[in-house]
């Protein structure tokens, strides 16, 4: 089943991107709220680049441009497989968006919370990890769900680096058979996954709202 394979690839890329995107996104968010100017600047630059250029271009850079670039500059041709290029590009790209979500959620917590924690003798990090961040979960759940849904759909861009994801697979099936119904299948599968995400995040939101 080609459609099944395509679906797996789509989910794999989205899954890898969200996991590494979250890890890297948290790190960048901490750089952003850090008191170090250097870390602030690094984080700013990162988001500026990855949010300010097209996702498609980032895919091209890692797949097509990198071997040429390394050949020119380092004298060795560093070629990475298309799937790896997709993992890297989507992870780095979603990290940029996710870092903004994390930073926003943390900074939306009332300043009085940090002051109260400090007044009780807690250190900045104790206050951050026990008081501020736990309160931010509830606020980052809705935008996180949004980002995940966008990510699942955006994976269709990998067709441009010759990867057979769900959409590319049905497009080829349509070409060779002349049947339009394959697009209906693809649409239904995308909807199935985005609906699951929505359902899960609605549940999470309820769960973390108990104290409000």
């Amino acid at each position: 089943m080609a459609i099944l394979e395509g679906t797996q690839r789509t989910l794999l890329i989205a899954g890898v991107a969200i996991i590494f995107g979250i890890i890297l996104g948290v790190l960048i968010a901490f750089f952003k709220i850090s008191r170090s100017r250097v870390l602030n600047a690094l984080a700013w630059f990162y988001v500026w680049v990855f949010r300010g250029t097209p996702m498609l271009m980032q895919l091209f850079v890692f797949y097509y441009a990198m071997p040429l670039f390394t050949a020119d500059v380092l004298g060795i041709t560093l070629r990475i497989p298309a799937l790896t290029a997709a993992f890297i590009a989507f992870s780095l790209n979603s990290a940029a968006y996710l870092s903004e979500i994390f930073r926003g959620a943390i900074q939306s917590i009332d300043k009085g919370q940090m002051e109260a924690a400090k007044a009780l003798g807690m250190s900045y990090y104790q206050a951050m990890f026990k008081i501020i961040i736990p309160q931010s979960y509830r606020r980052l759940i809705p935008p996180l769900g949004n980002e995940l849904i966008t990510l699942v759909k955006d994976t269709s861009l990998v067709a441009s680096i010759s990867l057979f994801d769900l959409l590319r697979t049905v497009q080829v099936m349509n070409n060779s058979s002349g049947e339009w119904v394959y697009f209906l299948y693809a649409g239904a599968i995308y909807l199935l996954f985005t609906s699951i995400i929505q359902l899960v995040f609605d549940r999470l939101e309820k769960k973390y709202s108990v104290y409000e």
Binding site: Q113, A116, A119, G121, Q135
Partner: peptide, 25 residues
């Protein structure tokens, strides 16, 4: 130093105008 400031603060209790209780606890 932050550590010394924290230690000092434990000898002083503070009550704020807007309570600032931790809502998730």
């Amino acid at each position: 130093h932050e550590k010394e400031a924290s230690k000092l603060r434990t000898t002083l209790g503070m009550v704020f105008q807007r309570f600032n209780l931790f809502p998730h606890l």
